[in-house]
């Protein structure tokens, strides 16, 4: 998918969890992405972040370490 669309989708998830009380927002973002994003989408996100992460919400960026890197695509 286009990087813009992927960034938007990831940021939308971050926008929701940012509004949630308590701590662990980054883990919640990562858990949501792990639960619902197919491996090649997660690969694209991780790859995109590695090359600059332009436009990615800081919360998504801090979630990246908990996003499960797919074994194979």
């Amino acid at each position: 998918m286009s990087p813009e669309k992927m960034v938007m989708m990831a940021n939308q998830i971050a926008t929701f969890f940012k509004t949630q009380p308590g701590s662990g927002q980054a883990e919640n973002v990562a858990a949501h992405i792990n639960d619902f994003w197919e491996p090649r989408m997660r690969s694209q996100l991780i790859g995109y972040a590695a090359t600059g992460a332009t436009g990615l919400d800081p919360l998504v960026q801090s979630a990246l370490s908990s996003v499960r890197a797919p074994a194979e695509v």
């Binding site: 998918m1 639960d35 619902f36 994003w37 197919e38 491996p39 989408m41 797919p70």
Partner: peptide, 9 residues
């Protein structure tokens, strides 16, 4: 064990 693609995906 991995989720699959949704229609838009």
């Amino acid at each position: 064990p991995e989720p699959g693609l949704r229609i838009p995906n």
